[in-house]
Every structure is written in structure tokens, then in C-alpha cells.
Simulated assay, not measured.
Amino acid sequence: MPRYLLRRFVGMIVVIFLVLTIAFVIVRLAPGDPAALMLGPDATPQDVTELRERLGLDRPIFVQYVAFVAGAVQGNLGESLFFNAPVTAVLAARAEPTIFLALFSLLFALVIATPIGIYAAYRRGSTLDQTSITSAMLAASVPSFLTGLIFQRYLATELGWFPVSGYGGPDAGFFERMRHLVLPSIVLGIVNSALILRFTRASMLDILGEDYVRTARAKGMTERRVVLRHALKNAGIPIITVVGLTFALLVSGAVVTERVFNLPGLGNLVVNAVLRRDYPVIQGTLIVVAALYVLVNLATDLLYLAVDKRVKV
């Protein structure tokens, strides 16, 4: 186990190092002078020169790279040009809506997909099985912004069950802010439940055909115990994998939903940063999301050991 964790930790460092390198190169490969692009066409040459000095773009490229990596390792991702504040502080201020949106969406997707996927595999070929597969394909095919707009109109505007958009006022309490996340969480949960449902069904179908499942039935075990204790437990690894990847995708890919529901999260922040040419924020978001992917993959691998003792490190 210690050697396994050490190898994974070294792998994490390599991945983060590559991400830092890519984030550094992206800005330098942008056509024209990055400082001039950030300031826009109305900037004077003096303004451009001052910004280049402020960002350290007047130094040799290798010196810039070393300074960038050293700062990122210490948690310094630069300073936002629009907010005039450290990028880490800007990201931290916008992280709450995105994190809770991803958690609620994943929870909603699991509540929908897991039991339906298990029962669809158990009743293979039945009407419910065919209906679940069709519904999953439909949910995966419809764009999330269209689903969001439909839900906004009927569930929020006409029925008034949920807030239409926003994240509550400046004085809104925690539960009021969470209430604004319910509808977008349902939208994202429906969209992402399709993949979890299909993986659950496929994994359960493979396990239900194994010899030890037939042996358990022959010994007189109840169907509920056979399906939930023997089959589901052994089908857990593919399900855990897709759940981990889904959570990482929800954090990094909720841009459209946040725009539709006007949530002040990381997705909305990145879109605005691109429009404002706030490259430090774009770089910082890329690094944070990549680090999250790496941590989720590590947590997923460790869960394998807890779910299935046959997995060898």
C-alpha cells in the first residue's frame, strides 16, 4: 500500500507539472502581445509596457516559466486583472455554488440511475428495461441548456416551485442559497444520470451471469440478497469509476447550466474571464480543475480497495 500511494503521488506531481506547463504555454502562444490583448485596442504603449512589467513578460521566457511554476507550487496563481485580487481568492469566492451544484447533481443522478439500472439489469428485456435505455439516450442527447430553459419556464416561472435564477441576495442565508441550486441540480442530474444508468445496467448484467450468482441462488438465498449483496458489490468498480469521473465533469463542465441559471460559480467566472481576457484567472481555473481531476482519480482508486478486496495495489 505505501509503495502504491507513493507511485500515485509521483504520478499526480507529473500530471500537475504538465498542466502548469500547458497553462503557461497557452498564454504565450496567443497571437500578438498578451499584455496588449488583455488591455484591448484602446490601450496606450505605456499601458502595455507597464502591464508587461507587472506580469513579468519582459523577462526571459525560462525565468518566467520558473517563476510561474514556483508561484503555483506555493499557491500563488497570479493576480486577476479585472478583480485586482489574487486569483486564488477569486476562485475561492466562486467555488461554493459550483461545488454544491456538482454534489447535488451527482446525488440526484445516483438516486435516479442506480436503482433503475439495477432493476433494468435484473429484468433484462422487459418493458422497464427498454424504457430506461430509451430514456437514458434521450437524456444524454438533449442539451442541458434546453432542459434548463424548459424547467425554468414550467417549474419556476409558471408553477413557482423554484427560484428562476440567481443565488439569492447578498444577505441570503445558506439554505436560501441551496434552494436556488435545486432546479439546476435537477437539470444536470438528469443529463448525467444517463451515463451512470447505462454503466450500472451493463455492469450488473455481466455479474448476474456469473457462476457464483447462480450458486447463491441454488443455495436458496433470496433474490434481494443475491442482487444487492453479491451482484451489486462485485459490480461496484465500474460504477465507482463513472461516478468519480461524473463528479469531476460536473465541476468543470457546468458552464452552460451556470449561465442559464445565472449562478456565480466557476463556470460563469471562466466565461467572463475569457470575454475580459483575464488570462491569470483562466490559467488558475485550468490548474485547479486539473488538480481536482487528479484527486478524484486517486480517491476512486482507493475506493476500489474498499469495495473489492480482490483488487491488488
Results as ranks from 00 to 15, higher is better:
residue 6 L to G: 11
residue 7 R to C: 05
residue 10 V to A: 15
residue 11 G to P: 06
residue 13 I to N: 03
residue 16 I to Q: 03
residue 18 L to W: 02
residue 19 V to E: 01
residue 20 L to K: 07
residue 21 T to F: 07
residue 25 V to P: 01
residue 27 V to C: 00
residue 30 A to H: 04
residue 32 G to W: 07
residue 32 G to V: 08
residue 33 D to F: 02
residue 33 D to G: 01
residue 36 A to R: 13
residue 39 L to T: 07
residue 41 P to W: 06
residue 41 P to R: 05
residue 42 D to P: 07
residue 51 L to I: 08
residue 57 L to I: 10
residue 57 L to H: 09
residue 57 L to D: 00
residue 59 R to M: 12
residue 63 V to Y: 10
residue 64 Q to K: 05
residue 65 Y to K: 05
residue 65 Y to F: 03
residue 69 V to S: 08
residue 75 G to V: 02
residue 77 L to C: 09
residue 83 F to K: 10
residue 83 F to P: 07
residue 85 A to N: 13
residue 96 E to I: 02
residue 97 P to V: 08
residue 99 I to K: 07
residue 102 A to Q: 04
residue 103 L to G: 10
residue 103 L to R: 08
residue 104 F to T: 08
residue 105 S to F: 08
residue 108 F to R: 03
residue 114 T to G: 01
residue 119 Y to L: 10
residue 127 T to P: 02
residue 127 T to L: 14
residue 129 D to G: 04
residue 129 D to M: 01
residue 129 D to W: 06
residue 130 Q to F: 13
residue 130 Q to C: 00
residue 133 I to M: 15
residue 136 A to S: 15
residue 137 M to S: 10
residue 143 P to H: 03
residue 145 F to W: 14
residue 146 L to H: 11
residue 148 G to S: 02
residue 152 Q to G: 02
residue 154 Y to K: 02
residue 154 Y to I: 14
residue 158 E to D: 14
residue 158 E to V: 13
residue 161 W to A: 13
residue 161 W to Q: 14
residue 162 F to Y: 11
residue 164 V to F: 13
residue 165 S to L: 12
residue 166 G to Q: 00
residue 166 G to E: 11
residue 168 G to C: 04
residue 171 D to C: 03
residue 174 F to I: 15
residue 175 F to I: 13
residue 175 F to E: 11
residue 179 R to L: 15
residue 180 H to W: 04
residue 187 V to I: 12
residue 191 V to R: 14
residue 191 V to I: 13
residue 198 R to H: 09
residue 209 G to A: 01
residue 209 G to W: 00
residue 210 E to T: 09
residue 220 G to K: 05
residue 222 T to Y: 01
residue 223 E to V: 02
residue 225 R to L: 11
residue 225 R to E: 13
residue 228 L to D: 09
residue 228 L to R: 05
residue 230 H to G: 09
residue 231 A to Q: 10
residue 233 K to Y: 08
residue 234 N to Y: 12
residue 239 I to K: 04
residue 240 I to W: 06
residue 240 I to H: 09
residue 241 T to V: 10
residue 242 V to E: 08
residue 243 V to G: 01
residue 244 G to Y: 02
residue 244 G to P: 05
residue 245 L to G: 06
residue 247 F to R: 01
residue 250 L to M: 06
residue 252 S to L: 07
residue 254 A to M: 04
residue 256 V to M: 14
residue 260 V to K: 06
residue 261 F to K: 11
residue 265 G to P: 11
residue 266 L to H: 02
residue 267 G to H: 12
residue 267 G to D: 12
residue 268 N to E: 14
residue 271 V to E: 15
residue 272 N to E: 14
residue 273 A to R: 03
residue 275 L to M: 11
residue 277 R to S: 11
residue 280 P to Q: 03
residue 281 V to G: 09
residue 289 V to Y: 06
residue 293 Y to P: 07
residue 298 L to V: 09
residue 299 A to L: 13
residue 300 T to N: 11
residue 302 L to E: 08
residue 307 V to H: 12
residue 308 D to T: 00
residue 309 K to D: 15
residue 309 K to L: 14
residue 310 R to D: 15
residue 310 R to W: 14
residue 313 V to T: 14
